[in-house]
């Protein structure tokens, strides 16, 4: 399966105002296991809710592209990497802990 480019609103609605940050997210999974599907559903839901129109999300299946596991230093799956905005953030797990996801993406201040 090729990397699924689920939604790319950034491309669709160009140009965006400069003061709004763009989110580039990548979700690495290993096969379409229930955990993978859960993670995909969770991140989509969060993005739609908090980052509507401001994000791009790529879902990458490591079984299809194992090379990327080395390049991106993936150990655990699912892993969500926030490429942009800097700094890089990594979230592991099926993203069912919504609070942690929001903190991890800096959408909610850390305690």
């Amino acid at each position: 399966m090729a990397p699924r480019r689920t939604v790319n609103p950034a491309k669709a609605k160009r140009p965006k105002p400069a003061d709004v940050e763009q989110y580039a997210l990548r979700l690495y999974v290993a096969g379409m296991t229930p955990r993978s599907t859960r993670a995909i559903a969770n991140i989509k839901e969060i993005c739609e809710e908090h980052l509507k129109g401001l994000y791009s999300l790529q879902v990458i299946d490591l079984y299809r592209q194992p090379v990327l596991a080395d390049g991106e230093q993936i150990i655990a799956v699912p892993t969500l990497i926030r490429k942009l905005p800097m700094p890089l953030r990594r979230l592991i797990g099926d993203l069912s802990d919504r609070q942690q996801v929001l903190i991890g993406l800096d959408l909610k201040p850390r305690q």
Binding site: N42, Y63, A69, I75, P78, R90, G93, S96, D97
Partner: peptide
């Protein structure tokens, strides 16, 4: 490379990524 400061945990996971890399 493992750096705890970069990694946040949000839910269940496994180490399949490591398996894939080692297998490859």
């Amino acid at each position: 490379h493992i750096d705890r400061s970069e990694i946040a945990e949000a839910g269940e996971y496994d180490l399949e990524g490591l398996f894939i890399r080692l297998g490859r």
